[in-house]
Design a protein around this nucleic acid. Structure first.
Lengths: 152, 152
DNA sequence: AGCCTAAGTTCGGTTTTGCAACTTAGCTTT
DNA sequence: AAAGCTAAGTTGCAAAACCGAACTTAGGCT
């Protein structure tokens, strides 16, 4: 889990670095959280996050550009048309990241006795965690993980 | 996976929000990546990330304060003492987040033919992925995940 | 015609970043 | 012992990102 191949690391080919260019700015991950929570509208984000309107407009624009989110126009009867932001497949696939962050936050940042929020399995009621596995869902121990460079 | 209990969400008790106060600033996740890659020294970070020295000093200070990282003094023979930053348990437990980000980056941001990097199981050589499970490592389908508020 | 509201823009001021130069303290070399 | 080298910061100033409040635009409602 601490990865020793120090010399042959090429920063431009690191998927974490690339990902953080889309996720790393302030507000982006919080906006994704709001979207997973089920909010979709500009005014919701602005009120819930207490973000300035100008920055919000910019971030949403960038997230649309990056393909995390798409902007839709919808209309409910006898209401004027409104805009809504919806996660794309690419955006939805960040749910794992959000759950991983949540799991960690829960372990280290929540005091006992306080109210908190967890993700649970609707059927069993059991708490969800992210686990290291291979593509067949067989558990992998983090001790045995190493980094490999390859041609895609 | 899209979570509908919109009304009863209290933003101050959300573990994602709390976590992002420690992780959400620019550079922090990249610094964690460097630490997982096995780098520990100020000069390494500065050169590898191309971050300004003043900001680097601040971020490292904050990460020490937050308990993600600890600063150690070490000395190799006939060298002067040097400083090294090492992940704490709390910091190491962010490895899941890094792997989740990496998995996503790999799926969406790497072009075919380009060089990239993946986490693999040392034994089987198989690629590592993060999976939704319960605490007994039984797979959970993301469709069935919902959010629960409770008293810790 | 006038009002209301969602979704932005604009603008001035404050915070973060970035960049380059300077500082400090051990160790080594002369 | 003086001079030099290097790791790990500081400092100071310019550039970029962010904030808050006010302003704009457009569709629907009274």
């Amino acid at each position: 889990m601490e990865l020793p191949q120090n010399e042959l690391i090429n920063r431009t080919s690191c998927p974490v670095g690339k990902a953080l260019q889309e996720l790393g700015e302030k507000w982006v991950l919080l906006l994704l959280r709001e979207l997973f929570y089920g909010f979709h509208r500009f005014e919701d984000f602005q009120q819930n996050l207490d973000i300035s309107r100008s920055v919000l407009a910019n971030k949403l624009g960038k997230m649309v550009e990056d393909g995390l989110v798409e902007k839709r126009l919808y209309q409910r009867e006898s209401e004027r048309p409104r805009h809504a932001y919806h996660l794309t497949k690419k955006g939805k696939d960040l749910f794992k990241v959000i759950v991983a962050i949540s799991e960690w936050g829960n372990r280290y940042l929540d005091k006992d006795g306080e109210e908190t929020m967890v993700f649970v399995d609707a059927e069993s009621g059991k708490q969800v965690q992210m686990s290291y596995t291979d593509s067949d869902f067989q558990p992998i121990h983090p001790r045995n993980i190493l980094l490999k460079t390859y041609q895609k």
